[in-house]
């Protein structure tokens, strides 16, 4: 299984991320999102951030999760390279995640794109019954 792949899009960035579980899919989606901004090989795990979210549907939760990463990047001035996601469904969906990374150091971190936001255009989560893999499709506004 490839963790994620980028697809052609004229103005923005489109990707699909996969996982055996929805947790793995969301973790890989976060990695795909962050890779559009900075090369993950240049990021060290020196600090961790905790994220707790809740939403009525898995798609809503996924949208909040990716938007939260953009928010943390900007407000914490930090770059991330590890995303550990836990999910629970009990009526609504709950997410608890630990994000690992470090504060931006412009001497080591070179940026490729500014992700303004996660769009909801063609935003979808599907489970492929044949391969048994979860897949999320995302378009980023850059």
């Amino acid at each position: 299984m490839i963790p994620f792949e980028y697809l052609e899009h004229t103005a923005d960035v489109k990707f699909r991320a996969y996982g055996v579980t929805p947790e793995e899919m969301l973790s890989n989606a976060a990695a795909a999102l962050f890779k559009t901004m900075v090369d993950p090989a240049t990021v060290q795990i020196l600090e961790t951030w905790m994220v707790v979210l809740e939403a009525p549907e898995l798609e809503d939760l996924a949208y909040q999760w990716l938007s939260e990463i953009v928010f943390l990047f900007e407000t914490e001035s930090a770059v991330f390279a590890s995303f550990r996601v836990q999910l629970r469904q009990n009526g609504s969906w709950k997410l608890a995640a630990e994000i690992g990374g470090e504060r931006i150091d412009l001497k080591r971190h070179s940026f490729e794109n500014e992700v303004k936001a996660i769009t909801m255009h063609q935003f979808q989560i599907k489970k492929n019954e044949k391969s048994d893999l979860w897949c999320i499709q995302v378009i980023l506004d850059v």
């Binding site: 103005a11 063609q122 378009i139």
Partner: peptide, 9 residues
């Protein structure tokens, strides 16, 4: 005009 999200650009 080109491909956007929601409305086209």
């Amino acid at each position: 005009a080109h491909l956007g999200y929601g409305f086209p650009i």
